[in-house]
Simulated scan of single mutants.
Amino acid sequence: MSRWAELTGGGSGAEYASRFARLADSGVDVHGEATLCASLVPAGARVLDAGCGTGRVAIRMAELGYDCTGVDLDVSMLAEARRRAPEMSWIEADLATLTGLHGFDLVVAAGNVIPLLAPGTEPAAVRALAGALRTGGLLVAGFGLDAAHLPIPPSVELAEYDGWCEASGLTLEHRFATWDAAPYEGGGYAVSVHRRPL
């Protein structure tokens, strides 16, 4: 069972969507992930939102002109994504056993996806996400590294994550402290951009 499922019981989709709707209504920019990803690949690029949840990132990127697919294991979250954007492709699958998806220009794993996977499945999930990339494609993952940035005890270190990426054939290209692309100089949150080399 994933740490996310243990945390939420797999039924928090509507509540999660409502929370972000309230933030957006209050004037908070809830599209930082999509903005950063859009700066990395041109409009029209194929994007896989891995651990897409309610579809917030994928839907925004589709609005910006990207060809987006979302994948998640939480059916309550996918139900919200399908309700909001029924015309888009939403796939129910475990990232650690993901197959059949290839040729993406960018894969994004936002919202603490990596540390909320089932314990021990992280390397397989990273390998699957790397396998979904075309040659030259990017894996972008943002997640917390300490208790202040996670809803669970910290479970993934950056060196460990980089090792999984390297073992999957990816090289580190950028590391930011936020989705606004602030330079990473240590701290409890990191956004990592790895590339599948040409």
Rank of each mutant, 00 (worst) to 15 (best):
S18P: 08
L139I: 04
A17I: 01
T8D: 11
E92L: 13
G163W: 00
A96R: 14
L7M: 05
G55A: 01
A110Q: 07
G187M: 02
S2C: 08
G136Q: 05
L145F: 07
V71W: 09
G188W: 09
T97H: 15
E173V: 12
Y66D: 00
A14H: 09
G13W: 14
D180F: 11
S12T: 08
V193S: 01
V28C: 04
R195E: 09
A147C: 07
A34V: 00
E157H: 05
A81P: 02
E122C: 00
D162M: 08
H102R: 14
M1N: 13
S2M: 12
G136R: 08
H174L: 12
L145I: 05
S39W: 06
W164S: 00
D105S: 09
A125D: 02
V156K: 08
D180I: 05
T121H: 10
G137Y: 10
P183G: 07
C37M: 02
S2D: 15
G13Q: 10
G9T: 11
F143Y: 13
P183W: 05
H31W: 14
A130I: 03
G51R: 00
D146K: 02
D29R: 13
Y16I: 02
L116Y: 06
G44W: 07
V107K: 08
M61Q: 03
R83A: 10
I114E: 04
A5W: 15
P123C: 03
T54W: 15
H102N: 03
S192D: 13
A21S: 14
A109G: 10
M1W: 13
S76P: 13
A141V: 08
V113C: 14
D94I: 00
W164F: 03
A34D: 06
H174V: 07
D72C: 08
I59A: 09
L23T: 01
L129V: 02
A167M: 09
W90N: 07
G163E: 01
A24H: 12
D72I: 02
I114F: 12
F176V: 00
L95I: 05
P183K: 03
G100Q: 08
H194G: 12
C52K: 01
Y16C: 07
H149W: 11
A96H: 13
L198F: 13
T178H: 10
G10Q: 08
S155N: 02
A38L: 11
V107H: 12
S155I: 02
S18W: 15
A190Q: 00
G142L: 11
V30K: 07
S168Q: 06
L145D: 11
L172S: 12
E15Q: 15
A85K: 15
S168D: 07
L145M: 14
N112C: 01
Y66P: 00
S89A: 15
L101F: 04
A125W: 06
R175I: 01
I91H: 14
I59F: 13
G100L: 11
L117Q: 06
G44P: 11
A141L: 07
Y16H: 14
S26G: 05
F143C: 06
R56D: 04
L198A: 15
G27R: 10
D74Q: 09
A182R: 11
